[in-house]
Amino acid sequence: MRRLDPGELVRDSGLVARRLMPWPLVNAPFDGSWCVVQPGAASGTHAHREHEIWVAVSGEAEIVTDAGRLPFGAGDIVHFRPYEEHRLVNDGEVDFQFFAAWWDVEMAERYSARDEDAR
């Protein structure tokens, strides 16, 4: 088990986060972070070559994409395609917490190679 220590969260593009993956004990085909967007804050708009999902854990926020603004709350999950610009806005009064995971073909290939080496 790996426990989250809130003291390990660091500022990153308008939010605070802690990388949880990669984790040397786990061979996973993705990377991931625990993220917190504080009240009145927003993540920076960004896009990247990886697929990405966000799993909302607590609070309420809005996702902003070219398609507009969408409500995003605890229990929701969203997928962003490669190079799709996105950001998260927390206009609420409490922290918004979510888990982000991202992957691409190169990451999957590295996972497969590590898995083959472990046999």
Results as ranks from 00 to 15, higher is better:
Gly44Asn: 03
Ser13Thr: 12
Ser58Val: 02
Phe30Thr: 04
Pro24Val: 09
Glu116Val: 15
Arg119Asn: 12
Arg2His: 10
Phe96Ile: 02
Ala118Lys: 08
Leu25Gly: 08
Pro6Thr: 03
Asp91Val: 03
Ala74Asp: 12
Asp117Pro: 02
Pro22Met: 04
Arg87Phe: 12
Val16Cys: 00
Gly75Lys: 01
Glu93Leu: 12
Leu15Asn: 02
Gly40Asn: 05
Ala61Met: 07
Ala47Leu: 12
Met21Gly: 04
Gln97Ala: 11
Ala113Gln: 14
Ser33Lys: 06
Ser33Cys: 06
Gly75Glu: 02
Pro29Ala: 08
Val55Arg: 00
Asp31Glu: 05
Pro71Phe: 03
Glu109Arg: 05
Asp104Val: 04
Cys35Asp: 06
Tyr83Val: 10
Ala56Asn: 00
Gln97Ser: 14
Leu20Trp: 01
Ala100His: 04
Arg19Val: 07
Glu116His: 13
Gly75Pro: 05
Val16Phe: 01
Gly68Ser: 13
Thr45Ala: 11
Gly7Ala: 09
Gly59Asp: 02
Pro82Tyr: 05
Glu84Met: 14
Ala28Tyr: 06
Gln97Glu: 15
Ala113Gly: 02
Ile77Phe: 01
His79Ala: 08
Trp102Val: 00
Asn27Glu: 13
Leu4Cys: 03
His48Ile: 08
Pro24Phe: 10
Ser58His: 06
Val36Pro: 00
Gly59Val: 06
Val105Leu: 13
Glu52Ala: 03
Glu84Gln: 14
Gly75Met: 06
Asp117Trp: 07
Leu25Trp: 10
Thr45Gly: 14
Arg114Ala: 15
Asp117Glu: 15
Ser33Arg: 10
Pro71Trp: 03
Tyr111Val: 08
Val36Arg: 04
Asp12Ala: 01
Ala61Phe: 01
